[in-house]
Each structure stands twice: as C-alpha cells, then as structure tokens.
C-alpha cells in the first residue's frame, strides 16, 4: 500500500518535471515569434526590440505602399485554389482507399503521402525543372499545383480519420433503404464528413499560404506570394514592414488553427 502511494507520488513528480520542460521548450520556440508583434508597432525604420515608440506606420506601409497587397491577394488566390483542389482530390482518394481493398493499396497510400516524406526542396526543384520545360510563365498554376501536391497528404490523413470514425453500417443501411451510391455519398457520407472536409480545407489553405520554398522556385516574375515577397525583401533591407506582415500572418494562422480545433471538437 505504502509502496504504491510512493510510486504514485514519484510518477506525479516526473509528470510535473516533464510538463515544466515541455512548457519551457514551447516558450523557447514561440517567444521569438511573439517578439515580432511589439516590434511591428515601432515607428522607426529599424527592426528594434524593445520598441521605443508606438505607431501604426508599418501597417500603413503594408496596406498602402509597394506591392505588398498584390502579393497578399496572390497568396489568397493560390491558397483558396489549393484548398479546393486538395480537398476534392484528397477526399475522393481517402474515400476510395477507406471503402475498398485491392492489391497494391498500401503502395498507393505511400505514393499519395510521399510529398510529406520527400524534402520540400526536392519537390520544389522537380516542379521547377518540370515547369521550365512545359513553360507556364505568366500564370500562378505552377505554384497552385505544387501547393496542392504538398497539401493532399494532410487532407487524406484528416479525411481518413473522419472516415474511420464513421459507422460503416450507416452507409450500408442507406443503401439497403434504396439509396443509390450517389445518393448515399451526397446525403449520408458527405454530411457526416463535413467537419473533416472543412478542417482539411483550412489546413490546405494554411499550408499554401505559409509555403515559401515551392513558391520561390516555380513562381515567375510578377508571381511573388506573400512569404516569397517577405523573403526577397529581407535579402535587400531589413524593413520593419516585415514585422507587421509577420504579425498579420501569425494572427491568420492562429485564427485558422483555433477554427479547426473548434470544428473538430464540435463532433
């Protein structure tokens, strides 16, 4: 009896230590990001911490000066297109994989998830060479294709878990009640997968919006997404506008992640 009590308190102690360590690691990783936020409200033309004054100059510059806004719009367009494409391809693939078994199924799963396993630089280089030969200059298509490729595995993983949690008998029951395969998909499967679909669409959007390597490799002149624009700006000058952009991006990402959590929890 004594022994178990001792070992229980021992394990709580270990748990506390592990928790403290995890929080420390988390703070270490996140604080540098949060430092950007006060920096973005600085009025001087330098990136400085702590900020010596407060102003919205950098935000004004983002919205009014230069081509920051056009890059932002491009990023939005690409991210929305990516989300739509990745969801349509990913959901149908996940459905097909979950509801059938055939030889080579494992190989197909591995193939579909491979963009997650291969370093992004390799994917980016491959796409660069591919589109250099095909020539799609003057369009955002190469970036969309690249981002879709990278987002599909995440959609498949999210949708597969939603499909696994769904009672298989429900679809059988609908079929026996007289629903055609299409009716079953539209009236039963799709509504039941709705939160999974929305969550994976938001994920795909975020992946595309944040992605810099592929966009940098295959984006032609006039097709700089927001992260690429930030990256190239920082090469020439350390502009405090970067801090403002980074702050806005952080808010967007956090917002989307919270939204995904709420949607997934609602079930």
């Amino acid at each position: 009896m004594k022994e178990t009590a001792a070992s229980a308190s021992h394990s709580t102690w270990i748990t506390h230590c592990a928790n403290a360590w995890a929080w420390f690691g988390y703070a270490f990783l996140v604080l540098p990001t949060l430092v950007i936020i006060p920096m973005s409200f600085n009025s001087t033309d330098e990136l400085a911490f702590p900020p010596d004054s407060f102003s919205l100059r950098q935000y004004e510059a983002f919205f009014l000066k230069g081509d920051w806004l056009s890059s932002t719009f491009l990023s939005f367009k690409i991210a929305i297109a990516t989300a739509v494409l990745a969801v349509v391809i990913g959901i149908t693939a996940a459905y097909g994989l979950a509801r059938s078994s055939f030889p080579g199924r494992g190989a197909i799963v591995l193939f579909l998830l491979s963009p997650m396993l291969v370093p992004v630089v390799v994917v980016a280089l491959g796409l660069y060479l591919y589109f250099a030969t095909l020539g799609f200059s003057g369009s955002a298509l190469p970036i969309i294709v690249g981002h879709t490729l990278v987002a599909i595995p995440f959609v498949i993983i999210t949708a597969s878990s939603a499909l696994r949690h769904m009672e298989r008998n429900i679809e059988s029951a609908a079929m026996i009640m007289g629903a055609s395969p299409f009716q079953v998909f539209r009236k039963v499967t799709l509504p039941l997968l709705r939160s999974g679909i929305i969550a994976s669409a938001l994920f795909a959007f975020l992946i595309s919006f944040d992605e810099v390597i592929i966009a940098y490799f295959v984006g032609r002149a006039g097709f700089s997404t927001l992260p690429v624009k930030m990256f190239s700006t920082i090469q020439w000058e350390i502009s405090p506008v970067i801090a403002a952009v980074a702050t806005l991006l952080t808010i967007l990402s956090t917002g989307i992640c919270i939204l995904v959590t709420i949607i997934m929890d609602r079930k």
């Binding site: 008998n169 429900i170 029951a173 609908a174 009640m177 039963v188 039941l192």
Partner: peptide, 13 residues
C-alpha cells in the same frame, strides 16, 4: 429490403 442493425445505424445528422 429492410434491415435492422445491432448498432441501429441511424443517420446521426
């Protein structure tokens, strides 16, 4: 046909 399942298989939504 009609079918009644052990776990009801009602449409949850």
């Amino acid at each position: 046909l009609g079918m009644v399942f052990q776990n009801y298989a009602l449409l949850p939504h």
